[in-house]
Amino acid sequence: MIERGTSTAPVDPPAGTPAKPVTTGTTRRKSVGFLGSSNGRKAVMAVTGAVLVLFLVGHMTGNLKAFFGAASFNEYANFLRTMGEPLLPYRVALTLVEVVLGACIVLHMWSAVSLARRAGKARPVKYAAKRKSQAGGYAVHTMRYGGVVILLFVIYHLLDLTFGTVNPAGWDGTPYERLVAGFAPERWWVTLFYAVAVVMVGLHLRHGLWSAFQTLGLASGRSYRPLKGAAAAISAVLVLGFLVVPVAVMSGVIK
């Protein structure tokens, strides 16, 4: 019931609106739990995203080995498989990393999809006027479709350089051979696709990096500027670091 003045007839709540439980300090509604709440899911997104960013930094650094020649690059690729030896058997450490990364991707997507669905339900009737963004910022509006582009890219990327399925050098080639064959000048469209995807990753991190700090409650009024600055800088470094290798191969600097 909306209480109105006597001059206005009382207004009933819309039919079909369930009576909402009113909680007080003493009688608490049954908790949906941490993972059931939007804040909990955001925290999952932030933490898994942070793990994936750390992976990206390592991945980018490793890629730059391509500039030191085939031997250096292949040796590094082999090191990833022999990491932890002799304590751990061959490829065990790498497999563990892969499992953690895979779990992070799944959880990151789960929180993103469930929160996007919740957001969709929260606004069933759209605005007639085209809504203008008042906050500015382009990156934030690329997060959802950008995430889908990144997912498709990751699938292609694994088929290309990990499994060699869509790579001319194939599974039997060395990692360096797959690299050089994959980004060969006549396959310029592969490099173009990588460039689009990597820029999407950059935009994703431009918003995602500082956003994760905000979600985990680690941001405050004074830290927004440095956080957003750092997010932009790290995103730019990652985009350049990831793009320089395929572009170098395509332009013949790396053969």
Binding site: P21, T23, S37, S38, K121, S133, G136, V140, S211, T215
Partner: peptide, 20 residues
């Protein structure tokens, strides 16, 4: 805890830090 859960129960969406 209670206010965040009530906010969810009412059907509001989650925050994506858009700043709008």
């Amino acid at each position: 805890k209670a206010m965040v859960e009530q906010m969810d129960a009412e059907g509001f969406g989650g925050c994506t830090n858009t700043g709008e």
